[in-house]
């Protein structure tokens, strides 16, 4: 099985999509994206931070704590988006057995876990002045915590497998099972929450947000999204290289054995 996996068709024989998703070709074209993406990310995040601190008003209800929203909301969005990326990649590795899909799913998991952790931490720091407590067993925070557990479980699972190609397909199954369950978990947690405490907690999504607050939010939102894209590319490249290193190490060991005998 491992022999067949290493025989790759040359990029020229394939269609457009297969060509950009060919691991070797991916290494080539993604290289030219790294610098522009870095520049875009740094500019957006710097500009967003400037807007957040120096060029946006305090909210009339929550005062200055609204500034936490500019880091909290993009990370909360990415915590879900990363899982969506993993789900798409899992379908890719189960249906098409595509090696790059495994790589993409594996690279997204630590990113998702970090963004989820940031969302939780900033949520707690936002909660302290507005709710008066760091942790509230509120529907959103609780389901974000469960999300973090799921990410960490998947990362732990990646680390226990020796054979990464097999790991990719097995983890794809559990990722899809998780995808079916996450909405149910969210629903059950929200239901449980309303059962135990009447909805008194403050909800950050007010219907009207003035443009002066929306603008920094948008800038930060795109800044963090580009950061995800950039880091995802770098992790995927690292993962492809890691697999090549493994293959070469195996060949090296094989060669040494042949020389001895």
């Amino acid at each position: 099985m491992s022999k067949n996996a290493s025989i790759e068709p040359t990029p020229q024989d394939l269609g457009f999509f297969s060509r950009i998703a060919h691991p070797g070709y991916f290494l080539q074209w993604s290289k030219y994206w790294l610098t522009p993406l870095t520049i875009i990310t740094v500019v957006l995040l710097a500009f967003g931070t400037y807007l957040a601190f120096f060029n946006s008003p305090a909210d009339y209800q929550q005062g200055d704590t609204v500034r936490i929203m500019y880091v909290h909301v993009p990370n909360a969005w990415l915590s879900q988006f990363c899982y969506a990326v993993m789900v798409v990649a899992s379908v890719g590795s189960l249906v098409w057995r595509h090696p790059l899909a495994d790589v993409s799913a594996k690279a997204a998991a630590p990113l998702g876990a970090t963004f989820t952790a940031v969302a939780l931490a900033t949520g707690a720091l936002w909660g302290a002045p507005t709710w008066g407590t760091f942790w509230e067993w509120d529907g959103r925070m609780t389901s974000t915590l469960v999300m973090l557990f799921i990410y960490l479980g998947i990362i732990a699972l990646w680390r226990t497998f020796e054979d990464q190609a097999r790991a990719g397909r097995i983890i794809a199954v559990i990722t899809l099972v998780g995808a079916i369950n996450i909405p149910i978990i969210k629903f059950s947690v929200e239901w449980w929450n309303t059962l135990h405490q009447p909805a008194s907690v403050f909800r950050p999504d007010g219907p009207t947000m003035p443009m002066s607050i929306l603008l920094p939010l948008f800038v930060m939102f795109f800044g963090f999204s580009f950061l995800f894209l950039l880091l995802h590319f770098i992790s995927m490249r690292a993962e492809i290289l890691r697999r090549r290193v493994r293959a070469l190490e195996r060949r090296n060991a094989q060669r040494l054995r042949e020389q001895q005998s």
């Binding site: 601190f53 120096f54 305090a58 005062g63 200055d64 704590t65 880091v71 936002w126 002045p129």
Partner: peptide, 16 residues
């Protein structure tokens, strides 16, 4: 802008 209100939490969240 003068951020006097809950400044430590705002700075904390950005630092985290």
């Amino acid at each position: 802008i003068d951020i006097s209100q809950h400044f430590e939490f705002i700075l904390g969240s950005y630092l985290v």
